[in-house]
Every structure is written in structure tokens, then in C-alpha cells.
Design a protein around this nucleic acid. Structure first.
Lengths: 195, 195
DNA sequence: GTCTATATGGCGATAGAC
DNA sequence: GTCTATCGCCATATAGAC
């Protein structure tokens, strides 16, 4: 009975690329080489399938960050690892990234709350602790948000930035992104760091 | 014959909220109080209507940035105005923001090129010039991308960040966002600026 | 330019055999 | 657990009258 898992895996890919309305149960059934009736045997309706697919996609990434917050690292090193890990995950697992972006657009408040609790909250709390150690800012929540926003949107905008002046291929490499983001976070736009 | 414009205006709102697949020609026709046949009189098919709606939404914002790059301002002041203006536009015109996010997700390379040329390129070039004046970084393109990414994604993540620890209502005010982003850009995460 | 009516096909979901 | 067949509805798009 890993039909069900196979369906979920496939659904994640399809939903992340074409959205809820853009994927029909027929499309999905064809992709997993089954009849629609067989798919409906595993999920009560399309909405339920979508929610399970979402949880499935997010659960896979839950423990990608485990190595980041180890107690015996400096705050600076923790931040470096987090930024690097986030860039890595978002670049590698394109389905996850697109699913997340789509949820940010389409989710109602209830699903947004779920996303916050199940996917973000733990990492966000760790990140806030690290920022408190590194900075005197009173805007810890906002600073943490900035870190995540920077990494997410840089990767999200890659397909666009390719067509803007000054683009270079290395701008899309994970290590380059992580290094530049960290430099910006530590030194601001002046970038007097390692250059 | 401003039926056509009225249809476009309505289409922008619907498409930005529910996406291409989520809006039927019937929905749209009902929203503008016409028959679907009347809508089809103005647009050859749904795809063409979508593309015209996209151009319509983006054209409205083209000259929102006119006051930003005035020659007699300091580079720092230009940057401040750009960040503030961008935050203002994205907060005020929710349809525009969502449409842009959706295009970043759904557009193929051709539409991405259009988006780059018609919407971003001019502002992006100005922004790169300003960054060159403010900074010694060799990564001007990347830094410019960071500025835009920061503002866009902070606003995009507001609905989520509401459910994360440490959130405060003032985090969603345009002036607060602009001020904090500028501080981060100039001083990094330490935020030793005006605090 | 707008309508009513309709052609044609895809949609979510179910019934019932195996 | 999977299939074929089908229900009832909604989709895009068009024909032709006014």
C-alpha cells in the first residue's frame, strides 16, 4: 500500500507547479497510471488530497535544519548555517519552494496558521535567539523575518533576475547566495567584509 | 466603449486573487454584469484577456516611481525613497502585488522576459546606479536584487508572520518597514543606526 | 455591443463488477 | 484496491438575432 504515498509524491509535484485549480483528478490519475476511481479510494475528495500533499511536502523538510542549531556553535556560525541550509533546501527542493510560495498566496487564515506552526515556528524561534545574541536591535522578530525573506525572495526571483542587467550565472549558486546574504546581514550594503 | 477597460479592471482583481485557472469566464462575466458572449466580443480568448489584464495592472504602476530618482537628491536619499515607494505600492495595490507574485510562479520564460523589460528594468537600473554610489561592492546586480527581495518578501509574508512569535501590529506599517529595511541595508543586522 | 441559446468537452465524484 | 462506465455540472467558445 505505498500507492498512497506514490500518489502524494506525484500530487506534490503537480500542485506545486500548477496549483490546486490547475491540476485535475484525471491529470493526477494519469500521472500515477491509475483510474480516478482508484485515486478516490485513497482520498475522500480533492481538497483532502491537497491538504495531505501539503503536509507531506512540508514534513519532508522538517528535519533538514537539525544540524543547524547545535549548542556548541557560535551565534555567528549558527546564522551562517541557517542561511546556507535554507538556500540549499529552497534551491534543491523546487516543489517545496513553489508549494510554499503558493500557500503564501492562496492559503486562508486557518491554513496560514498551520503553516506557521508546523513549518516555520521552530526554526523561527531558534533564529530569533541567535539574532538576540548577535545584535542589539529591539526588532528581533522583524530581523528574523528579514533573514528568511531575503533568502526566499532572492531564489524566487531568479527566473526574473536572469533577464535584468548585470546578471551572472554564479548568482544562482547556493554558496554564492549564502555568502552574499550573510555579508549583507553582518555589514549592510557596503559589504566591507571579505572583499 | 469603456466596457473593455471595466472588464480589464475587474479581471485584474479576480486573476490576482484566484489565478488564471481559478477564474472562469462566467465568473468574470457575472462580476461585470454581462454575458460571456459580450466578454468574448472584446477578447479573442481567455489567455489573451489574461495577458491584457497583466499589462493593464503593471502599466498603472509604471510611473509611481517617477519622483524617486530626481537628479538633485543624494544617493542615500534616493535609496530611501525607492524603498519607501516600493513598500507603499506593494502595500496599497494588493492586486498588483499578488499578480506579480503569481507571475513569478506561473510565467514561462517569455512572460518572465516581458515582466523584466516592462516592469522591472528601468527601476532596477536606477537602483544599481545608486548602489554603485553608496557601496564598494562588486556585486551591484545582486545587491539591487536584495533590496527588492527584502521589501517584497517582507510584505508577502505578513499574513504568515502574524502567527509567529514576537509579532507586533506596527510591523505591518509601511513607514516602519521602510525604516527598518533601510537600517538593515546601511548597517546590517546589528542595527546600530537610529536606535 | 449585447443578448439567448447551444455545441463540445472536461470536471469532481460515485456505482458496482472483479 | 483497482477497474469501467456514468451522472450531473461547469468550462471555453461560437452562432445568430437584435
Amino acid at each position: 500500500m505505498d500507492s498512497k504515498e506514490y500518489i502524494l509524491q506525484t500530487a506534490v509535484t503537480l500542485f506545486s507547479r500548477q496549483g490546486f485549480e490547475g491540476v485535475s483528478m484525471r491529470d493526477l490519475a494519469k500521472s500515477v497510471d491509475m483510474s480516478t476511481a482508484a485515486v478516490y479510494h485513497h482520498f475522500s475528495n480533492k481538497q483532502a488530497l491537497y491538504l495531505e500533499a501539503m503536509n507531506f511536502a512540508f514534513a519532508k523538510q522538517a528535519r533538514a535544519f537539525d544540524a543547524v542549531w547545535q549548542a556548541d556553535l557560535s551565534a555567528h556560525e549558527k546564522l551562517r548555517r541557517f542561511v546556507s541550509c535554507l538556500a540549499q533546501v529552497l534551491t534543491t527542493d523546487v516543489d517545496f519552494r513553489r508549494f510554499m510560495q503558493r500557500e503564501l498566496l492562496d492559503a486562508d487564515d486557518e491554513r496560514m496558521q498551520l503553516l506557521a506552526k508546523e513549518v516555520f515556528q521552530e526554526q523561527f524561534s531558534h533564529l530569533m535567539t541567535v539574532i538576540e545574541q548577535l545584535s542589539e536591535t529591539q526588532q528581533v522578530h522583524f530581523s528574523a523575518l528579514c533573514v528568511i525573506a531575503l533568502v526566499c525572495d532572492i531564489i524566487q526571483m531568479q527566473a526574473l533576475s536572469r533577464h535584468l542587467p548585470g546578471w551572472q550565472a554564479e548568482h544562482e549558486q547556493v554558496d554564492f547566495i549564502a555568502e552574499q546574504v550573510l555579508d549583507l546581514l553582518m555589514n549592510g550594503i557596503k559589504g566591507d567584509g571579505n572583499k
